[in-house]
């Protein structure tokens, strides 16, 4: 650890806050990406197995 002298508080707080903010935006972006990807996969799977409305009507008729 370098000797930061009387400015230790300023330097360390700058690094701490910046790294926390960077980690937060990265984590948030990855988390949202995964959540949306999972939801989309679920809906796509559901849509693929559900017959279209038009074909349902044809079957009903």
């Amino acid at each position: 650890m370098p000797d930061l002298g009387k400015y230790a508080e300023a330097v360390l707080s700058a690094y701490a806050v910046s790294l926390i903010l960077i980690a937060a935006i990265v984590a948030l972006s990855v988390w949202r990406s995964r959540a949306i990807k999972r939801q989309l996969a679920e809906v796509e799977a559901r849509v693929a197995t559900t017959p279209a409305r038009s074909s349902e009507k044809t079957q009903d008729a």
């Binding site: 972006s29 990406s33 990807k37 989309l40 809906v43 559900t50």
Partner: peptide, 20 residues
């Protein structure tokens, strides 16, 4: 890039839900 890909998926998700 990551967030744009997420937005594209989100848009498709909304379109599919609306169609459903």
């Amino acid at each position: 890039l990551l967030r744009t890909r997420t937005e594209i998926r989100h848009r498709r998700l909304h379109a599919l839900l609306a169609r459903e």
